[in-house]
C-alpha cells in the first residue's frame, strides 16, 4: 500500500519536474530543430515539426559563408589560454590566503571581487586606447590577458573556498617532516586540490567562451572568437531563421557538450564552496 502511494508520488513529481525542465530547455531545442529546416519551413505558420522539410543545407551555407574554423580556434585558444594563465597566477594566491591568512585576508578577497563591479561599458574607451597603444588590439594575446584579468577574482574565490576545505593538519605534518613550501604546494596540496581546480577550470572556460563584450569590442578579424561570429549573423527581420539557428547551434554546441559531460564538476564549482 505504502509502496504504491510512493510510486504514484514519484510518478507525479517525475512528470512535473520533466515538464519544467523541458520548458527551460525548449528554446535551445527549438533552435537546434530550426537549424535543420529549410528557410521556408523555419518560418511556416503554424510551426512545422513532423511535416517540416529537413535539410543540412544551412550548415553548409554557414560553413561556406564564414570562416568558422578560425572563429572556433580563436574561442578555444582564448578560453583555455585565459583559464590556464589565470590558474597559474591564482593558485599561489589562493593557497597563501587559505593557509597563511592575515587579518586583512577577507578584505582582500572582497576587494578582488569588487574589481568586477566596474561596468565594462564604463571603461570601454580607455581599454580600447590601451589595447591600441600596446599593440594588443585584435590579438589573441590581448584577449587572453583581458579575459584572464576579468575572471581572476572568480578563480581566486573558487580556489580559496576549495583550499579552505583541505585540513591544515596534513600540511603541518608535512612541515614537521621538513617539506619546503614549494614541495608542500606541488606534492601535497595540488593532488588534494585537483577536483576543485578542475571545477574552477571548467567554469572559467565557460565564462570565457560566453564572454561577449570585450571579445567583440577588442577584435576585428584576426582574434575574433565565436561571439563575434554570431554577431555577424544577426539577420535583419528574420529572413534567415534557419541559417541563424545553424550558426547559433555551431556557436554553442562545443561548450554545451562540454558542460553536459562536466556538469557534476560544474555544479560543485558553481557553488563557490558556499553551500555544503
Amino acid at each position: 500500500m505504502a509502496r504504491s502511494v510512493s510510486t504514484r508520488r514519484k510518478l507525479f513529481f517525475t512528470v512535473a519536474a520533466w515538464s519544467v525542465a523541458l520548458l527551460i530547455f525548449f528554446p535551445v531545442l527549438w533552435t537546434i530543430l530550426t537549424s535543420f529546416k529549410t528557410e521556408a519551413s523555419a518560418v511556416a505558420s503554424p510551426p512545422e515539426l513532423l511535416g517540416a522539410d529537413w535539410t543540412l543545407q544551412n550548415y553548409s551555407d554557414v560553413w561556406a559563408r564564414s570562416d568558422y574554423p578560425r572563429f572556433f580556434l580563436n574561442s578555444v585558444i582564448i578560453s583555455i589560454g585565459s583559464t590556464v594563465l589565470g590558474l597559474l597566477i591564482a593558485i599561489p594566491a589562493a593557497w597563501s590566503m587559505a593557509f597563511v591568512p592575515g587579518n586583512k585576508t577577507k578584505d582582500l578577497l572582497m576587494w578582488m571581487l569588487s574589481t568586477k563591479m566596474m561596468p565594462a561599458a564604463a571603461v570601454l574607451i580607455p581599454m580600447y586606447l590601451i589595447f591600441q597603444k600596446t599593440g594588443l588590439f585584435d590579438t589573441r594575446t590581448g584577449l587572453v590577458l583581458a579575459l584572464m584579468l576579468m575572471n581572476l577574482p572568480v578563480i581566486i574565490w573558487m580556489l580559496y573556498t576549495y583550499f579552505k576545505e583541505i585540513p591544515g593538519e596534513i600540511l603541518e605534518a608535512a612541515r614537521m617532516d621538513g617539506a619546503s613550501l614549494k614541495n608542500e604546494v606541488l606534492y601535497i596540496l595540488t593532488p588534494m586540490a585537483i577536483p576543485g581546480i578542475a571545477s574552477t577550470m571548467l567554469l572559467n572556460i565557460i565564462l570565457a567562451w560566453n564572454e561577449a563584450f570585450w571579445t567583440i569590442t577588442l577584435t576585428t578579424i584576426n582574434a575574433a572568437p565565436l561571439s563575434a561570429f554570431i554577431a555577424s549573423f544577426s539577420a535583419p527581420q528574420g529572413l534567415f531563421y534557419a541559417k541563424l539557428s545553424a550558426a547559433s547551434t555551431m556557436a554553442i554546441a562545443p561548450i554545451l557538450i562540454m558542460g553536459w559531460f562536466g556538469q557534476k564538476q560544474l555544479v560543485r564549482g558553481l557553488t563557490f564552496g558556499a553551500v555544503k
Binding site: I24, P27, N210, I216, A251, G259
Partner: peptide, 26 residues
C-alpha cells in the same frame, strides 16, 4: 533532468538574445 535545466547557462548572451528575439518574440 539536471542537464536540461542547466543548459541555458551554456548559451552565450548574444545567442540567447537573438534566439528569443527572432525565434520566439518576433
Amino acid at each position: 533532468l539536471r542537464i536540461l535545466v542547466i543548459s541555458p547557462f551554456f548559451v552565450m548572451p548574444p545567442v540567447a538574445a537573438s534566439i528569443w528575439e527572432n525565434l520566439f518574440m518576433h
